[in-house]
Amino acid sequence: MLAKPGQLPAASPMHQSERAIAEENDIVERAKTNPEVFGFLYEKYYRSIFVFIDRRVEDRQTADDLTSQVFLKAMLNLPKYQFKGLPFSAWLYRIASNQINEFYRNSHQSRVVSLDDTHLERLFGEAGETAHRDRANLVRHLLDQLEPAEVQLLELRFFEDRPFKEIAYILDITENNAKVKTYRILEKLRKLLNLNEG
């Protein structure tokens, strides 16, 4: 039986069991013929999509507008959705990612990248550096060398801790390509660290 939206577990929707993913797909299939059923998915994922967008834009109103657009597009394109063994949220994040790209293409503003201390810890840990003082400044230099698609990958992998399979799906690239690009980003960071030390 379906849980009511308010009773859904608070755990990250990106890490669901196979059974939960299959159950969710049943809801998606029902929502294809009855748009009101989509309300369950809206309730379940509104928060995570809003936060995802909010970290990538300047203000909350823009995040609100873009989040509404994401869910509207998801509803309109639901008949085209094909289950690929991933949580439905991966498809929503993919739409959100495209929506953010479209917003920056049209507005010509500088992209916003949100960072927490824990993200920096994780990123520098992966690069093999744990004791650097001016990490924020180094990340600023690193970002200057990266294209928007690479920054998106950096955010998804190191700031949001997503598996490569989902990153590849969200960015519409192969899993292997996502791994290679991540390796290259880390190489760039290591070079910057070496330059800084030298």
């Binding site: 970290r55 300047e58 503003q109 500088s110 992209r111 916003v112 990248v113 949100s114 960072l115 927490d116 201390d117 924020a136 990340v139 600023r140 970002l143 200057d144 920054v151």
Partner: peptide
């Protein structure tokens, strides 16, 4: 214009 705007914490 700067390429990216960083928001820390």
């Amino acid at each position: 214009a700067e390429k990216y705007r960083l928001k820390i914490n």
